[in-house]
């Protein structure tokens, strides 16, 4: 058990270091930081001094170690374009993205599991057929089309919901939230739907397939033969076994919600990290890009870690990898 956790954590750290190496190499191979920061008129002398001050003359491993140490505290230097600390930029943009992603993830896992179970248990009902049909849209339509469709319907035609931005936000310390104002909540609805819909249908189809599979197992047949009520068989015996594999894939999918957020944020002009990253790419703002890369990596790794640990809770076979106890005596 402890070995399993240590192994998971070790792998997580390894992944982060590799991604950090990638981010670090961007500084060296894309553009010239000195030229970027010093500007066109700087003298040769100025440039050398700046390079010295930035530590660019040190050996590469030392530079990388310094990068790692700073990254661990969320420091990635100054934005080339905005001249502000990257950490401040990220902190400012993060709440918008996290709120959007977490709500989408909750929507996707919650309704995905619910509908997956429903369509499996009632697989021949009208309701299940309709849900499955609609889910095809989620799987096949690109995210931005769904977003644009929603904007057209609810913002342009019906004028029920705002088509862009976060609405009014409330400050809680350094965090800003849209959840506490009516306009903030209204602004969240469409982006959350857009970002969560694909994941929702994916998780739903996954849960359904897995649930159908589980309902065919011997222990479900045996549970029926023991006279357990059908609801108990479905929700206690089948669902928990269904969730074991679903958690893994759902977890990976939720990590990618952050990545997908770039598209959704662009469609809804959402002031989040994805939008920040798109700007950074346009202006080759390496520190911001590096910071975003690390942020996505951290999210993936943390989600993975949580998945690994949930796995242990759901499946006792992982907890004790001890040998078989007792012979057939």
């Amino acid at each position: 058990m402890i070995a399993y956790i240590l192994k998971s954590v070790g792998q997580a750290i390894l992944v982060l270091v590799v991604v950090a190496a990638l981010a670090f190499s961007m500084f060296r191979f894309i553009g010239d930081p000195v030229a970027n920061m010093a500007g066109q008129e700087a003298s040769q002398q100025d440039r050398r001094e700046l390079a010295e001050r930035l530590g660019l003359n040190d050996p590469v491993p030392i530079q990388f170690a310094r990068f790692l140490a700073n990254a661990a505290f969320g420091e990635f230097g100054m934005s080339y374009r905005q001249g502000r600390k990257v950490s401040a930029l990220i902190a400012e943009r993060m709440p918008a993205t996290v709120e959007l992603a977490v709500l989408s993830a909750l929507l996707a896992t919650g309704f995905g599991t619910l509908l997956g179970v429903y369509t499996a248990i009632r697989r021949n009902s009208w309701g299940a057929h309709i849900v499955m049909g609609i889910s095809l849209i989620g799987v096949s339509l690109p995210t931005f089309l769904i977003g644009i469709g929603l904007i057209y319907l609810f913002a342009v035609e019906l004028k029920w919901l705002p088509s862009f931005g976060r609405g009014e936000t409330v400050k809680l310390g350094w965090w800003t939230t849209g959840l506490l104002t009516p306009s903030g909540r209204a602004s969240l609805i469409m982006p959350v739907l857009t970002l969560g819909f694909f994941q929702l249908t994916l998780i739903m189809r996954l849960v359904r397939a897995q649930m159908l599979e589980t309902l065919r197992t011997d222990y479900v047949k045996f549970a029926r033969a023991r006279g357990l009520p059908e609801s108990r068989i479905q929700f206690r015996h089948a669902l928990r076994n269904t969730l074991v594999p679903v958690v893994t894939i759902a977890g990976l999918q939720l990590g990618s919600v952050i990545a997908f957020a770039i598209i959704t944020e662009s469609v809804f002009q959402w002031p989040g990290l994805g939008a920040l990253f798109v700007q950074a790419v346009q202006f080759v703002d390496i520190p911001v890009m590096a910071a975003y890369l690390m942020f996505v990596a951290v999210v993936f790794v943390v989600v993975n870690l949580i998945v690994d640990l949930t796995y242990v809770l759901l499946d006792p076979r992982l907890k004790s990898s001890t040998a078989v106890v007792g012979g057939g005596k």
């Binding site: 011997d218 222990y219 045996f222 006279g227 076994n241 499946d315 006792p316």
Partner: peptide, 25 residues
Amino acid sequence: LRRIRGKRIGMVFQDPLTSLNPVYR
């Protein structure tokens, strides 16, 4: 019927390895 199944008539299946739910004691 459910009150008879498992109560008055019990059934043992072929494969004990898969008859028990792996996630419960």
